[in-house]
Amino acid sequence: MPRLTARNLTKTFNGLPAVDQVSFAIPDGAFLALLGPSGCGKTTLLRIIAGLEQPDHGELFFDDMAVVGPGGMLPPEARKLGMVFQSYALWPNMTVRGNIEFGLRAQKHPPEERRRRIAEVLEVVGLNGFELRRPHELSGGQRQRVALARSLAMRPRLILLDEPLANLDAHLREAMLAEFRRIHSVTGATFIFVTHDQEEAMAVATHLAVMNRGGLEQVGTPEELYLRPATEMVARFIGKGRTLPVEVLASEAELCTIGLAGAELKVPGQAPVGPGWLCLHAPDLRAVAEDGHLRCQVVNQIFQNGCYASQLMPLGIDTDTISLPLPGRLPQGADVEITISGGWVIPRQASASLVGGYEFA
């Protein structure tokens, strides 16, 4: 399975960048989720990897083979990859067997080899006994597994999944995520999965690539992006995080001394002295009776899962509300003292342009 390397990939439409100077490298056998809000460029990047879009600039390598570069662009059929679409794209008049066999026939594999591969992939995707059914006789999850089996039968170097769960209900999405994890483990294939749903991405991916406005904000493991975001966008996007403006007073060995609304505390981070962001998630915050690091006022509360999901407005700093579960109901405008027990500090000016390229061993 290929090591995938991109260098400065750029694609514009009507003068506007859909993919803007994107560079990264992921190892063999990774499960990469391209994640980001609608319109961020993730599907365009996937189509460039598939060979369905030609970039204006940049290079793309599968191992040491250039599939996009100064020498031209390798066509999709020569890239030895499989693609699973949101719409499944199955032939409605063909059986499950016929849909899987179609590509094998086109490549002129002999009948015995076709039979062997079909039996193999049906076992992998858990559809033994469904060979003679047609797409309309299958559930949404089963049709998605047929589409995946069709790709796997070609023994591709790379599997691309373009929002494959968007048409499934919540129960089927959860079941298919478990299937994707299992099939990735069994096959050892390199998967690239496009989604705007970070819970889907976190559930299956070994690596996440967060895109925003055509650029790459950060690539890393789910733990890295959650615990050590590189930009404000990543900090707020992953895990419903929040950022508070702080002043970095001192910084040494990934430990920052920060000033926050008159309080001084030490928090892990990578930021020079000067303006910074304190990146937080709900587990980093706790309400206390007195002497907290941050005083807030209650804006709104909703009873949820045995506690009161509360929107709190920090006082003394210019920021949005923060969310925190509280054990009891409080009147609107009531003061709440908050202590901060975790988080990660980044420079205030941190942006995708400062993060640089990405390389994994």
Rank of each mutant, 00 (worst) to 15 (best):
G58C: 05
A119H: 05
Q332W: 02
L45S: 10
A201H: 02
G269D: 05
D56P: 00
M83W: 02
K240M: 12
L60T: 07
R182Q: 08
K266A: 15
Q304I: 14
H207A: 07
N167G: 07
H281L: 07
P37V: 09
A235V: 05
V267F: 08
A89G: 04
R286F: 03
G69V: 09
A170K: 09
G274W: 03
G141V: 08
S87R: 08
T10S: 13
L16S: 14
M73F: 12
V210M: 12
D162Q: 09
T44H: 07
P76E: 10
E131I: 13
P111W: 01
I322L: 15
D56G: 03
R157S: 15
V96S: 07
E163A: 13
A6C: 13
R143L: 08
L160T: 07
T257G: 11
G241P: 00
E113A: 15
V267R: 06
L35C: 08
E120V: 00
Q198E: 04
E137F: 09
V299C: 05
E59D: 12
L244E: 04
I183L: 14
G82P: 00
T221Y: 06
R115N: 06
C307Q: 13
A253H: 10
P347R: 09
E174W: 01
G29C: 13
G342N: 06
A175F: 01
D291T: 08
E112F: 00
L294R: 01
V186D: 10
L16M: 14
H171T: 12
A205K: 02
G316A: 11
H196I: 00
